[in-house]
Design a protein around this nucleic acid. Structure first.
Lengths: 116, 116
DNA sequence: CTTGACCTTCACGCTGACGTGAACCCCTAC
DNA sequence: GTAGGGGTTCACGTCAGCGTGAAGGTCAAG
């Protein structure tokens, strides 16, 4: 299928799909005319990628561990190996940092505004 | 005083001080040789700016409302006018959005990692 | 033949506060 | 004179995932 169909079926924009390819997380075949050619399995793959993106995983990490992704009845999950576990933990830690930073901003903003 | 001294006394880098000037939030005098010349009051002003930056206020907002800043026993506060109130509320809303987004990422990341 | 809806590859824009050289001037001290 | 430690102004790099034209090729339909 063409890129616009894959986009429609996954809810991911065509631009995003090309971006995934740029980052090496989604390899596409090519038709003789140069158009990107996708298969049914790519639909699943894109949904896996999207799930990982939404979970805060950077494309650099997704590229290396996309094969750990499994799509089951409970949605997308990752088969953890030590290396992936370490990356995920680091990402979780960063998210926690950002959350703390935002929390501080909220407090500072509140302290800055009398009777806010 | 010169820029490095102001930097040392405020904990704000010289680069950041020049950045503040670029953004129009900190006006500096000039010595005959072209060096930026700061006064004692600039120390207070920089600390006010830093407090506002740390609270999430963008330099564009700080530039317009820096004169609302007051430094007292309870730290830096802002004298609120309707316009500033609106901006601060908008910033608070954005912080809340980001917080919600992070919260969702945390959940999705947890759902992605079995027995995480 | 000509729309017109697809597709392609660049490549800048965005959100923000700086970091980091590059290339060069000022002034003091040895 | 010559280091050497300031200072100055550009101006691109950073972090991320796309949005948004721009310029142009492909192909089925009228």
């Amino acid at each position: 299928m063409l890129i616009s169909e894959l986009a429609a079926r996954t809810g991911v924009s065509a631009r995003a799909l090309r971006h995934y390819e740029e980052r090496g997380v989604l390899v596409a075949g090519r038709d003789p005319n140069g158009y990107r050619a996708y298969s049914e399995s790519d639909v699943v793959r894109v949904l896996q990628i999207k799930t990982m993106i939404d979970a805060g995983l950077p494309t650099s990490t997704i590229r290396r561990y996309i094969d750990c992704a499994r799509t089951g009845d409970h949605g997308v999950t990752l088969e953890m190996c030590p290396a992936l576990r370490a990356e995920v933990d680091a990402i979780a830690a960063r998210i926690e940092e950002q959350r703390a930073s935002l929390e501080e901003k909220r407090e500072r903003l509140g302290a800055l505004t009398p009777e806010g």
